[in-house]
C-alpha cells in the first residue's frame, strides 16, 4: 500500500525574471506505515516539498496522491484529517497568547470532534506531558515541551500521515533523544506514516527506513538506511554528505 505518491513535482516561487524553481521533478513513494526521510543542505528544497503537500506553497505542478486520492489545488477538509505537519521551530509555531488547552481545543473543535475535554487530556498524556501543563502558555514551557505540544496538536485530528520538518534541530541533543523516542513510540502505537525532513543524516538514519537525498531542488538518489549505514551511496553528492556527517 502506498500512503503518499509524489510524481514529477515542481514547485516554484515568484514569476518571470524572479522565478525560483525550488523543486524540480521530484518523484517518490512512501508506503503505509513507512518512515521516509528527505535530506540535503538548506535551500535544496526538502522543506518545500512538505509545504507543497500541505498546501503552504501554492505554485506547484505534478501529481500528489495521498492514500489513493489525488490532491487538487483546493484541499478538502478530509485531507487535513489525514495529513498533519510538525514544524521546525517550536518557539515560532505556537501562538504566544494561547494556552496549551486552547491550542489543542481549537484544533479539535475545527475538526468537529466531541468530548474535547477528554481528548485534550488524552493527547497530553500521549505525548508525555500530563495534565499540569494543560493551562500553561508557551513561554512557560521549555523547547522540548513546546515541541511535544506541537506534536500533540498534529495528532489531534488522528492523522495517518505526519510530515515532520526538522522536528528536533532547534533542540538540545538530550531533548532530541526524548522527542525522537516519542515519535518512534507514536508511530508504533498508531501505525503512522512519517515523511521527515532533516539535515542530520544520523537522525534520519535512526528514524527512517528509506531516504531521498536532495540537491538544488532535485532528488539525486533514493536509498534505504542499510545502504546508508554501509556507506553504499551511489551518487557522489550523497557520498560527500555521508563523509561530512561521520
Amino acid at each position: 500500500m502506498t500512503m503518499l505518491d509524489v510524481n514529477g513535482m515542481n514547485v516554484w516561487f515568484g514569476k518571470n525574471r524572479d522565478r525560483v524553481d525550488a523543486v524540480k521533478g521530484a518523484s517518490f513513494q512512501v508506503g503505509t506505515g513507512e518512515s521516509f526521510g528527505l535530506v540535503g543542505e538548506s535551500g535544496s528544497g526538502k522543506s518545500t516539498i512538505l509545504r507543497a503537500i500541505t498546501g503552504l506553497a501554492p505554485d506547484w505542478s505534478g501529481i500528489i496522491t495521498v492514500d489513493g486520492t489525488p490532491i487538487g489545488k483546493k484541499r478538502p477538509r478530509g485531507f487535513f484529517k489525514t495529513v498533519q505537519m510538525v514544524f521546525q521551530d517550536p518557539y515560532a509555531s505556537l501562538h504566544p497568547r494561547h494556552s496549551v488547552d486552547q491550542v489543542l481545543g481549537e484544533t479539535l473543535h475545527l475538526h468537529g470532534f466531541d468530548d474535547i475535554d477528554g481528548r485534550v487530556a488524552k493527547l497530553l498524556d500521549d505525548v508525555g506531558l500530563g495534565q499540569k501543563f494543560r493551562f500553561r502558555y508557551p513561554h512557560q514551557l521549555s523547547g522540548g515541551q513546546r515541541q511535544r505540544v506541537a506534536i500533540a496538536r498534529a495528532l489531534a485530528p488522528e492523522p495517518t500521515l505526519l510530515l515532520l520538518d526538522e522536528p528536533t534541530s532547534a533542540l538540545d541533543v538530550s531533548v532530541q533523544a526524548e522527542i525522537l523516542n516519542l515519535l518512534a513510540d507514536l508511530r508504533a502505537d498508531r501505525g503512522l506514516t512519517y515523511l521527515m525532513v532533516s539535515h542530520d543524516l544520523s537522525v534520519v538514519g535512526h528514524m527512517c527506513d528509506r531516504l531521498a537525498v536532495m540537491r538544488n531542488g532535485e532528488i539525486v538518489e533514493i536509498l534505504d538506511v542499510d545502504a546508508l549505514r554501509a556507506s553504499n551511496a551511489a551518487h557522489p553528492y550523497s557520498q560527500q554528505l555521508l563523509q561530512a556527517s561521520l
Partner: peptide
C-alpha cells in the same frame, strides 16, 4: 556520557535512544 549516548549514530543503530 549521557550526552554522548543520547546521540543517534549511523554506525551503531539502536531501537531507542538513551535519555539523559
Amino acid at each position: 556520557r549521557g550526552l554522548l549516548n543520547s546521540l543517534p549514530r549511523l554506525d551503531a543503530p539502536r531501537d531507542r535512544l538513551e535519555v539523559l
